[in-house]
Amino acid sequence: MNRTLVRLLQAPSIILLLLWMIIPLSMTIYFSTIRYNLLYPERSGFIGLDNYRFFWTDPSFFPALTNTLVLVGSVLLITVVLGLAISILIDRPFKGRGIARVMLISPFFIMPTVSALVWKNMLMDPNNGLFAAFANALGMQPIEWLQDMPLFSIIIMVSWQWTPFAILIFMTSLQSQDKEQQEAATLDGAGFWSQFYNLTLPHLARPISIVILIQMIFHLAVFAEIFVTTSGGPGVQSTNLTYLIYIQSQQAFDVGVASAGGVFAIILANIVAIFLIRAVGKTLTV
């Protein structure tokens, strides 16, 4: 195969991705520096960093940033800890293991809007939901989940979907763990925690970091769960950055401010992406 042909075959993917990246990105950056509101088309012109200042000083900005970080951090903690525990529990032969595995990873394949509705209505609804029924049966006051602890409710929903992801990855990695080494350690009298700390955790170090990085990329962008359940409320209690930018663009029609927010989100995601790409790059052999 000659060089021209090699280049010709590679060209479409490279050119298309380049366009897909450059065009919207440069437009976002451009919009972020001009006055551009769909409701007031007569106002226009370059305004430097005013959109950024507007986005930055919006009273919703700081809560949204905090919510984003709390959401990402909590979900990571829950999914990694639960994922580790469950994948270790299931990493042994037993009857029906295949079925247990399938049950454990299924939530990951449920579409986010469905999972949000199932949790919002059938489980968390304070009148007819299942949790309320349990609370009533125990003689307690049902919790108004989405009203009283909206962000925590979203954290539960997202964790329910993503713990299976962690389980799936950890389970696969555990299969390649040296079982003889573990048996030897057991014979030497090493207890569970000592084995976990000295053998399992080092073996899972890479998968854990990959799971954390990939989840960060996705959780910075949580949208559907908020859109379907709380619409960011009450107030801005469950608004994250993604949802705040969505509101700016689709309800305030402020292209300029939404774009400034978009640039902010891109920078935030890229900080994570650099680490992730490095981690992936280490395993890629050319």
């Binding site: 976002t28 995601a269 790409i277």
Partner: peptide, 27 residues
């Protein structure tokens, strides 16, 4: 360059949708 190209491709995947919402919507 192959590895760099692949890594760059992967980096486009990290672009948050909301960051390019306005351009895509307006286009």
């Amino acid at each position: 360059y192959t590895k760099d190209i692949l890594m760059w491709m992967l980096s486009t995947k990290m672009l948050p949708a909301v960051g390019v919402l306005m351009p895509i919507y307006l286009i």
